[in-house]
Nucleic acid binder design. Sequence first.
DNA 1: AATGTATTTAGATATTTGTCTAAATATATA
DNA 2: TATATATTTAGACAAATATCTAAATACATT
Lengths: 84, 84
Amino acid sequence: MNDIFKALNDATRREILELLKTKSMSAGEIADQFHMSKPSISHHLDILKRADLITAEKSGQFIFYSINTTIMEDVLQWILTFKK
Amino acid sequence: MNDIFKALNDATRREILELLKTKSMSAGEIADQFHMSKPSISHHLDILKRADLITAEKSGQFIFYSINTTIMEDVLQWILTFKK
DNA sequence: AATGTATTTAGATATTTGTCTAAATATATA
DNA sequence: TATATATTTAGACAAATATCTAAATACATT
């Protein structure tokens, strides 16, 4: 839970998740959407991956990232415990 | 949204929310549940309050904190956009 | 008015975080 | 095999964060 909230606690990372909501993208395609260096985006992708919020799959010289919505379910359940 | 995720990105603060889920408590009562100085807990309460996740009400020399679940609804909605 | 209790504010400090540039690694292609 | 492209790793650095102790504020009680 700690890793998930840590990963979600950054606007850039939340935007990456929004991007991946529609389709999988390579690291480069993702980086192109931000005014930030590729290494920085790579770092954000790593944090999202560690939290299991995204998965990575290598295809040739590209690495494609996809969202993993099953982890969102954990957050959802946690939030729901606060609904009366 | 930023303030909410920032507030949720700390185990102590999440535990405070869990505590307040059952009943409102004074700052001192809350602090007693943790191995941490009162000023540190006061700081955490401030962050939760800024995120509108809790509300504070003064009663004599005490300040009672209560959870504000309506804000959780915002997080819930955000999470739900990821459910396929 | 003086003292005690509850809480916050202020200031210091160590750790974590987000960002960058430069270099390394891996794959594709000429 | 040499070069180009995609991505990550390494290292540096400034800013943000979590914690502490000491001091300040506010209310209650004697």
